Computed example of a mutant assay.
Amino acid sequence: MFDIDTNIPKWVYEHHERWDGKGYPQGLKGEEIEREARILKVADTIDAMISERSYKKQMDLKEAILELKSCKGKDFDPYIADIAIEILSEKLNASKQIIDEIMLPANIMIRSGSKINSLNGFVYKEKKDIVFISTKPVDDFEEELIDSIKLAVEKFNILYEYKIKTTIIDTNKLLINEIQPVESEVAFGLLWTLEGNLVNTTTRQTNVITITKISGEGLVFNFEDEEYIDEKGIYVVIVRFEDGTNVPLSGRIIGKTKINKLTHYVFKFVDVREKYRDEVFRQIFRKQISYKKMLNE
Rank of each mutant, 00 (worst) to 15 (best):
I65T: 06
I98L: 04
R204Q: 15
D230G: 05
P181H: 09
K293C: 01
F221N: 00
V42W: 00
W19F: 15
Q288P: 00
N200M: 04
G218N: 01
R282P: 01
E36Q: 14
I98H: 02
I85Y: 03
Y13K: 12
T212R: 01
G251Q: 02
K232S: 14
L174D: 01
I83A: 09
I179V: 05
K232G: 12
Y276W: 08
K41C: 09
E297G: 06
I65G: 01
L92G: 02
I130E: 06
K72A: 06
F122L: 14
R282W: 10
I229A: 08
D230I: 11
S215P: 07
A43W: 05
E279V: 05
E36K: 13
I179W: 02
D139C: 08
D77I: 08
V123P: 02
L174E: 00
P181I: 12
P78Y: 12
K127E: 13
Q58Y: 04
K213T: 05
F223T: 03
K74I: 14
L40Q: 07
S114V: 10
M49A: 04
F267E: 01
E226S: 12
I39L: 13
K268H: 11
K173L: 08
K173F: 04
K275F: 10
V138W: 00
K261D: 14
I146D: 02
P248W: 12
S184G: 15
D147T: 10
E195K: 10
E178S: 09
E224N: 11
Q58D: 11
K213I: 01
E32L: 07
D47N: 13
F141V: 02
V208T: 13
D60Y: 06
P9T: 06
I169H: 00
G30T: 08
V237T: 12
V182M: 13
Q205F: 08
K10P: 04
S51M: 07
Y79V: 12
E86V: 00
K128E: 12
K29V: 11
N120V: 06
R18F: 14
I99H: 08
V266P: 00
L190H: 04
V42E: 04
E154D: 07
G73N: 09
I176C: 01
I234G: 03
K22L: 13
E142V: 10
G218W: 06
K275I: 13
I214V: 14
V247Y: 06
N207H: 14
P105T: 06
Q180N: 11
A64S: 11
L219S: 00
S134F: 07
I50K: 04
F285P: 04
F221E: 00
V280I: 14
V42I: 09
G255F: 05
Y55L: 09
N117Q: 12
E183M: 06
Y160V: 00
T202D: 11
K258Y: 01
G113T: 02
P105R: 01
P248Y: 05
F156V: 01
E63A: 10
Y265K: 05
S134M: 08
I102V: 15
Y55A: 09
N222A: 04
R252E: 13
K173Y: 02
R286Q: 12
S250V: 11
E63R: 02
A64G: 07
I253C: 08
H15I: 01
K165A: 07
D47T: 11
Y24I: 14
V208G: 00
S118V: 15
I149K: 02
C71E: 15
F285I: 14
